[in-house]
Design a protein around this nucleic acid. Structure first.
Lengths: 246, 246
DNA sequence: CGTACGTTTGATCTTTCTCAATAATGGTGG
DNA sequence: CCACCATTATTGAGAAAGATCAAACGTACG
């Protein structure tokens, strides 16, 4: 396949290294992690609320979402994960999963057992620290989502989500020439922003009319990153990543 | 004062122990942590967005909130902290703070230096793990807040926040005889739920009319926890704490 | 005992939702 | 390669939840 097994965990190493510099030794330890490659269909679940996971999946190709439902059946998307991100640290160290993790597209993950990760941390405390830092950053992103959904109007809200996604793709060097794919439907975008898909559609059209975004299918481009960032009230501080604006 | 210095860190030890059982040795190591007691006025800031903290405050008495503002000046409260909780793990291991931490009431904190915490973790990896777990649980709470603010209507939303607070107080053994103090104004409750204070007021009155809550100043009581939990769509799973319903 | 802060009330306005229908797209089997 | 079907996107009209504005009322504390 496009991603040879040899490079499977390099993505993870790069991601961890992004936030907390790791020595060669530590990076090699990550690359030596025993793991199993698994191919997944679109919409398949990696983890369900209530599960007691004993392994951690690292996303290699494709996109995934975390989500959670309320008693009346409505669904909130909590995060969109991109290649290179670990999908279950959140759940691996807690008794049971408090949310679902589901593939958006078809994709590939590398499964690493809980024991392997625990051994890695026990041997390399710096890696434990890198994981803690990654976890703290994810918490920071959730905080920003609370702000986004709690305080911003629909236009700013959607623009903010688009900015965050573009920025994170860029940090993982996954976007090309300004255009990037937003791998989700308007319905899902609605679930992520606490709006309805009808309203999301109208807001996207308005952003387009105002020349803030260009759309082709699910590809999106910002004619002016600065203007978009401004409309979105987007300040990347909460991502705790060296500035890598598109 | 009411809390003699001897017991200052016992609260923290109890909190950490709540989620990840620690041995006597580890608990003693926590109790031996060098720290400085500090008395704080209501509304004083413990940490501001952009700060680069080199110490961690453990809240001993009083209540604190985490919050963040948007470009247009509106404010979102992200969490309410109760005695026994550490206020800055989030920020201690990252370069700069991404949100504010502010006292609601007057109170007392114990400051522990970053070095002391790092030494503690280096020596006792189990404590590092307890901190990771605590951090993961906080992230889970933020996720639930995203759901709360994103999907639930105002009535359910406010009820949910009241339930969470009561439940957490109870887990820290801080509530007495069913009544508990909600130490925040309706304005702040509005900032926490993404509503206006006018609407919060009306919803509280409606909850009262329906016999779901009783109010006396800022003291609140639930005549029936079960009924309240139901109305609030409250499932404590996300708190990852042994069931300690009021 | 007055003043600042918090709560409560009423009237009106706006954003976003709901419902329902139509159009476009993409994937699949023939 | 094409036709068909399911999913997704778009549009319009009407409804509702919650916001806004403005004023009056309580109450805690200096």
């Amino acid at each position: 396949m496009d991603a040879p097994h040899e490079t499977a965990l390099q993505l993870l190493a790069r991601k961890l290294n992004l936030h907390h510099r790791l020595s060669e030794v530590h990076q090699h330890a990550i690359l030596a992690l025993p793991h199993k490659i698994r191919r997944l269909e679109a919409h398949s679940y990696i983890l369900r609320e209530g599960d007691r996971p004993d392994r951690c999946a690292v996303l290699l190709q494709g996109y995934a979402v975390r989500h959670k439902s309320t008693g009346d059946g409505s669904r909130q998307i909590l995060a969109i994960n991109i290649p290179g991100e670990a999908l279950d640290f959140q759940n691996l160290f807690l008794e049971e999963a408090d949310h679902n993790v589901q593939m958006l597209s078809r994709g590939v993950v590398a499964d690493v057992s809980r024991e392997a990760i625990e051994a890695l941390i026990a041997t390399h405390s710096e890696i434990g620290r890198a994981i803690l830092i990654t976890t703290l950053i994810e918490a920071s992103i959730f905080r920003e989502w609370v702000v986004n959904v709690g305080q911003r109007d629909s236009r700013t809200r959607i623009a903010h989500l688009l900015c965050e996604f573009a920025y994170r793709l860029n940090a993982q060097e996954l976007n090309t020439d300004g255009f990037y794919e937003l791998p989700i439907t308007q319905e899902q975008l609605a679930d992520a922003t606490g709006l309805t898909s009808v309203h999301v559609n109208r807001v996207l059209q308005a952003l387009q009319r105002d020349g803030l975004i260009e759309r082709d299918r699910r590809m999106i481009r910002f004619p002016s990153w600065e203007r978009m960032q401004d409309v979105a009230d987007f300040n990347p501080r909460y991502l705790h990543t060296a500035d890598l604006a598109p």
